Amino acid sequence: MKIAMIGASGFVGTRLINLLKEEPAKYTCSNIDLQPSHFFNEITTIGDVRSQEQMDRELKGADVVILLAAQHRDDVSPVSLYYDTNVGGMEVTLKAMEKNGIHRIIFFSSVAVYGLNKKNPDENHPADPFNHYGKSKWQAEEVLQKWYESHPDWNINIIRPTVIFGERNRGNVYNLLKQISSGKFLMVGKGENKKSMAYVGNIVAFVKYMIDNITEGYNVFNYIDKPDNNMNQLVAHVSKVLNKHIPATHFPYWLGMTGGYCFDLLAKITGKKLTVSSVRVKKFCATTEFDATKVHTCGFKAPYTLDEGLARTLEFEFVHPRPDDITFKSE
């Protein structure tokens, strides 16, 4: 089976290629990305998902397309890049697939399509994205919905993961774990807000499961590793894994947001991208709990528990020295 990935030089794509290459007799992988791959450059072609001519050429002969390419950071400028890549790239990909007779696509969307502070939304919950990333991901899904109406023989699988973490990732979860493990952690709010998370080892295992088992129809899956931890429980788990006492000072929400706005102003004045912002404080304090009943009752069994994923990440990043400094930046 020939698997054509678009945007797989990053964190999730690298782990997915690594998993599929464990069975070379079953899968042949290719990758089209704006950036070279740290580990799989021999199968990577430098390309742009927005280029129709290039996608028409590079997808030739594929059996399944996995679309990971996206603008995803909080601070992308101009904001039109979210829509050019996340929506326009979808339109280009579908046209290239049709030209090449490919009828199967797996698309990485996001739980960001639901918006903030929703009460455990499942896949049927109305979309209500609050930022350009979420809005552009939802618009890309709408393109897929419309496409399926005129292509009912296609197999379209959409995965909406929550925040993904794991070894080598440099995103919000890594920054949070680093702050907690440093012992200089400042808790904004009471720490009772729950944080849905997904370990990268489980995400890629589910994608492989979809390739092999979910081969018909239009399907949407939230992906979250359960059960969810609240912030206080997360701090306690980090303390247990690292075997160290980690104090957590609680600051009221209004004070945290005031600090976030101050960092916004500083970033605007200096022109630098800072690790603290009002958007990130808001996201930190939000409850991000999502229903994952569908994915965990479809026959898929995650190879790791959430706590095992956290422990593997903590040990890789903060306990055992690594032979290289290769990392992946994300949100």
Results as ranks from 00 to 15, higher is better:
182 S>Q: 02
112 A>I: 11
209 Y>G: 10
94 L>R: 13
66 I>P: 05
83 Y>R: 12
241 V>S: 03
188 V>M: 05
294 K>F: 05
162 T>C: 08
99 K>T: 12
315 E>K: 15
72 H>S: 13
221 F>S: 01
199 Y>S: 11
85 T>S: 05
36 P>V: 07
109 S>Y: 09
58 E>Y: 03
38 H>P: 07
123 E>N: 03
322 R>Q: 11
27 Y>I: 12
154 W>H: 15
262 C>K: 12
103 H>T: 13
175 N>V: 05
178 K>F: 09
170 R>E: 01
12 V>H: 02
56 D>A: 08
317 E>L: 05
156 I>Q: 06
310 L>M: 11
324 D>R: 01
321 P>E: 00
258 T>D: 00
74 D>Y: 04
229 N>Q: 12
319 V>T: 06
273 K>W: 14
27 Y>A: 03
237 H>M: 12
126 P>S: 10
302 A>V: 10
233 Q>R: 11
113 V>Q: 01
28 T>V: 08
224 I>H: 03
290 F>W: 05
39 F>H: 13
249 T>C: 14
10 G>M: 01
124 N>S: 14
86 N>R: 05
130 F>R: 14
194 K>Q: 06
290 F>M: 06
316 F>H: 12
164 I>P: 03
59 L>Y: 02
251 F>I: 15
201 G>D: 01
266 L>N: 04
147 W>I: 07
326 I>T: 01
128 D>Y: 11
17 I>H: 08
28 T>I: 11
10 G>V: 11
237 H>V: 06
